[in-house]
């Protein structure tokens, strides 16, 4: 496995990529780079252009503008077949042949990829999604979640360099979703590059090395914690048993505390530059002032807060 972000090691890159359907812009000016072995999350609200981006990178539709490199090959008509050989896509809807059994579905695809030894590969893929014992069942008889897993097994068959997963856990129960998460973790350890679109921010936060937030244009891109820090000042929340008589005297001038405000009569929010310095200093100052401290904690913003902040901005921007 190559280190993430090494120059020249990018598995996937897009520069100014854009797709229009007539007047409607599906996405535009999308520029990003995904390193080999990276799990890259692609987040965005409904209609943001995630699926269209996946289809464009997977050579199913032609970009209206911009360029891209997929699995080391420029996204051009003459490279389409070779690109498709190197990638696999798990589309938004499974698209299984419902009259064929699980195994027949996979066999067809194994041959479409011209795999030299299809049998063991099919078994390995079914094993990975824990469907070996349902292999002979017609896909039409499987539940939505099981179909989703067959679809994932199908995407694993060809040992792709890049795996595009378009909302792989939508509609899955929590256990099945966790299984998929573990599978993605396993693939990451094997060095597979994964491009994951999702609405589930907990999922993105847990699985992705980096995420991009798309809303027709890219709104932000980076590690989940970086995005958090960019958007939100770090804060400490202090709870005391009784209101402080003079909170300003306690908090002003403390090391690494940049601002403070009272949230209600017994809780205070401090804007801090370094939690490890500010927290002990605040506790000492509170004790010295004779306050009874109930708790001092860093308020953590989740990726969800980041996402909502960015996407809400867009909605407000549009209203204006």
């Amino acid at each position: 496995m190559q280190p993430v972000g090494e120059p020249g090691a990018s598995a996937l890159s897009a520069v100014g990529l854009c797709k229009r359907f007539g007047e409607r812009v599906a996405f535009e000016d999308v520029t990003f780079e995904v390193g080999r072995g990276e799990v890259f999350g692609f987040l965005g609200p409904n209609g943001a252009g995630k699926t269209t981006t996946v289809r464009t990178l997977a050579t199913l539709i032609k970009p209206s503008a911009g360029s891209a490199t997929v699995a080391g090959l420029p996204l051009r008509a003459e490279n389409e077949v070779e690109i498709r050989r190197r990638i696999a896509v798990m589309p938004e809807s499974p698209g299984l042949y419902l009259r064929l059994s699980v195994e027949e579905n996979l066999t067809c695809f194994a041959h479409l990829y011209e795999l030299p030894k299809p049998k063991p590969r099919i078994e390995a893929a079914l094993q990975a999604v824990r469907l070996l014992e349902r292999r002979a069942d017609p896909c039409g008889s499987l539940s939505k979640g099981l179909r989703q897993r067959v679809c994932l097994a199908r995407a694993l068959l060809s040992d792709p360099e890049i795996l595009f997963l378009d909302e792989p856990t939508s509609g899955l129960d929590p256990v099945a979703a966790r299984d998929v998460h573990e599978l993605i973790d396993g693939l990451r350890r094997q060095g597979v590059t994964i491009f994951l679109t999702t609405h589930r921010l907990d999922e993105a936060e847990r699985l992705c090395d980096r995420v991009a937030i798309l809303n027709t244009t890219l709104r932000s891109i980076g590690r989940p914690d970086e995005l958090r820090d960019q958007l939100f000042a770090r804060t400490l929340t202090v709870h005391t048993l009784a209101p402080l008589p003079e909170p300003g005297r306690v908090f002003e001038g403390l090391a690494c505390v940049e601002s403070w405000r009272a949230e209600d009569s017994t809780s205070y929010v401090l804007g801090v530059s370094d939690v490890t310095v500010a927290a002990p200093a605040a506790v000492r100052a509170l004790v010295a002032a004779g306050a009874d401290v109930l708790s001092v904690g860093e308020s953590r913003h989740s990726l969800q807060d980041v996402y909502l902040e960015l996407v809400d901005e867009d909605v407000e921007g549009r209203r204006r």
């Binding site: 077949v81 589309p91 698209g95 042949y97």
Partner: peptide, 14 residues
């Protein structure tokens, strides 16, 4: 109509 065309077209088939 069945939605099976998209996955097929993502394979190397011409």
């Amino acid at each position: 109509q069945q939605g099976t065309l998209e996955p097929v077209l993502t394979t190397p088939i011409r």
